[in-house]
């Protein structure tokens, strides 16, 4: 077999050469083509060749939604005190610090208030870079406060989900966030002001099983993975391979779980039009 063996010496690039190209190019997960990062940024992180939607940071997301990218951030200082003192192979505190350094955020969601098409809006966006966009007490509290704000100011609300679900490192406290947020949405129902849930790739677990599925409209970006159980868990349970496209946005639309699939480029206009049709900014007696 000796002639099949190959010395596995990694190809080494001189350091000075590496610098010129590093980080300038990215491979599209959709069509496998190599893309210039600047093109991608100018195209709202959508592949200019196949339309594949890359994940967006929460900062980019809110900048995209609000007029001229301007908004007031709320509750930026909320952070987790690690209530369980959770340590597995690495401590939760360490994981938090690393995620905070990576994202410049205290936790996995950004909460803002600004103008959409000239009209006031409350919006939150989750950030997958922060421990998989997982939902602990801080995410729960920030969303709940955003809902409170929408109720108090009588403003429409958008929450952009991008999350693996409840955050394991906060145990049952994370789980309770599902109930807390949903109860706050019950109060918003009584106002009423419209809440549009935007589901992006991926939205699974406890995030889907609470606010993400509770929009007056539930809309998703094309191709987004959306579900309760993760595909691997289902495969292990039923011991079969899952069909292509299972739990993708198009599958959910077909099964009646979404109002619409809206490409990122049309998102802002779609939200503004829907809110107008629902009378979100009409003068109210109250």
């Amino acid at each position: 077999m000796a002639w099949f063996k190959k010395e596995k010496k990694p190809l080494e690039t001189p350091a000075d050469k590496k610098v010129q190209t590093e980080g300038l190019w990215v491979k599209c997960d959709g069509c496998r083509q190599i893309l210039w990062k600047k093109d991608l940024e100018q195209n709202l992180q959508c592949c200019p060749k196949c339309g594949y939607h890359f994940k967006m940071t929460s900062q980019a997301r809110l900048a995209m939604l609000f007029d001229e990218g301007k908004y007031t951030e709320h509750d930026a200082g909320l952070a987790s005190p690690d209530p369980l003192e959770f340590t597995d192979r690495k401590s939760y505190r360490r994981r938090l610090e690393e995620a905070q350094k990576l994202t410049g955020m205290k936790d996995a969601i950004l909460s803002g208030e600004g103008l959409l098409d000239g009209k006031p809006l409350i919006a939150c966006a989750m950030d997958f870079r922060f421990i998989g966009g997982s939902m602990g007490a801080v995410v729960g509290e920030k969303i709940t406060r955003a809902i409170d704000r929408a109720i108090a100011k009588r403003l429409p609300l958008v929450i952009v989900a991008c999350s693996g679900g409840a955050r394991m490192m906060e145990g049952a406290i994370s789980l309770m966030q599902l109930a807390t947020i949903s109860a706050a949405l019950a109060q918003l129902d009584a106002v009423p002001k419209p809440f549009i849930s935007v589901l992006t790739d991926p939205t699974t677990g406890g995030t889907t099983a609470s606010f993400a599925m509770l929009g007056d409209l539930n809309i998703a970006e094309p191709g987004a993975l959306i579900g309760f159980a993760g595909p691997r868990v289902i495969e292990q349970t039923i011991k079969q391979k899952l069909p292509d496209g299972f739990q993708r946005a198009e599958f959910l639309l077909q099964h009646g779980m979404l109002d619409a699939i809206v490409p990122r480029k049309e998102m802002k206009a779609y939200l503004a039009r829907s809110f107008r049709l629902l009378g979100a900014w009409d003068e109210t007696a109250a």
Binding site: L178, S210, M213, L214, F228
Partner: peptide, 10 residues
């Protein structure tokens, strides 16, 4: 499944 749980909570 997710919608059923979420709707119950609300």
């Amino acid at each position: 499944q997710a919608e059923a749980i979420a709707y119950n909570l609300k």
